[in-house]
């Protein structure tokens, strides 16, 4: 939507702001991200530190940690997701109201981290729910979490609410629910949601770095 930049400036000097509904809605959403209050492992300690006075996540409107998924906009997956915990995380995500966003914080939430080759840890929460921002680190410092939050704010500010490329939560056909894996006799069933998880095939060249 093209607004004459000069006209907008002139109106602004008169105390009139001209903008699109899309920008206004996205501005509101990105400026009051309420995270859900839950932590899974040591990354949660850094998450808590980021909300305290020194790092002060409240500056960005993201300090209201809600104890209920119904009131939360942002799921911070802060820590190791064990296979026993994974269905509960997915269920909590399903219970959040749209629009909802996910930040995978730390190596474990992204890929399983140091526990990747173990039998009991999920190799990344992106197998079951869509992840918007990943923050590497073990654990990431509070600055890194704030950087991730900034990246998410930018992403939300650029969201298309109408048209062909509109985001999931503005699309009537978009789904807010993702299948919750079941506890199987040896592993979770299914082991990943293939509709949202598309790992790139990896082929090692002979003699190449392994």
């Amino acid at each position: 939507m093209a607004i004459d930049q000069k006209l907008a400036e002139d109106l602004k000097s008169q105390g009139i702001h001209v903008t699109s509904f899309e920008s206004l809605i996205n501005w509101g959403r990105s400026s009051s991200l309420w995270p859900m209050q839950f932590g899974l492992a040591c990354c949660a300690i850094e998450m808590i530190a980021a909300t305290m006075a020194k790092y002060d996540m409240a500056r960005f409107g993201a300090e209201v940690f809600r104890p209920s998924p119904r009131q939360a906009d942002l799921m911070l997956v802060a820590g190791t997701v064990t296979k026993k915990m994974a269905p509960l995380v997915v269920r909590l995500y399903n219970q959040m109201a749209e629009p909802k966003y996910v930040i995978a914080m730390g190596a474990c939430a992204i890929s399983g981290g140091p526990f990747k080759q173990g039998y009991n840890v999920l190799k990344g929460i992106d197998r079951y729910i869509p992840v918007d921002i990943v923050i590497p680190g073990c654990p990431p410092r509070p600055e890194a979490l704030l950087d991730g939050l900034m990246a998410l704010r930018k992403k939300i500010a650029g969201e298309k609410l109408i048209g062909k490329n509109r985001v999931r939560h503005a699309d009537a056909k978009g789904t807010a629910e993702f299948p919750v894996p079941e506890y199987g006799p040896h592993d979770l069933q299914p082991t990943a949601n293939r509709e949202i998880w598309h790992p790139k095939p990896v082929v090692h060249e002979e003699g190449g770095d392994r």
Binding site: S111, K116, Q117, G118, Y119, H186
Partner: peptide, 12 residues
């Protein structure tokens, strides 16, 4: 014990 065969890419 045989762990589930769910190996994934490992850089090193």
């Amino acid at each position: 014990y045989v762990a589930p065969d769910d190996f994934e890419y490992e850089p090193t």
